[in-house]
Amino acid sequence: MLYINCPHCGMRSQNEFSYGGDASVKRPELNKEISDNEWDDFVYNRKSLRGKHLELWQHISGCRQWIKVERDTSTHEIFRTFKANEEIA
């Protein structure tokens, strides 16, 4: 079971969180004309990366905040975690 550092609550076990997918996906702006391909990329197309991956988790049984977690998908090592609105360098 992973041990995730919620930037709001501290170290908590994985069973308090739910997974939310790739954090690098950006929703297209409302009312903007976009192509089918762009929309498909946003809704469906995801890379299944091996290695460092920025992903979303929600601290569902804690503070209910969505957070960003930088994790290695093959070793499960967690490098850093961020608040939803934090700028990531």
Binding site: S18, G20, R27, L56, Q58, I60, R64, Q65, W66, A84, N85
Partner: peptide, 13 residues
């Protein structure tokens, strides 16, 4: 609830 929180916290803060 999670759906609303997702959009409020991440998409349209």
């Amino acid at each position: 609830l999670s759906h609303l929180e997702y959009y409020l916290q991440l998409v349209w803060p």
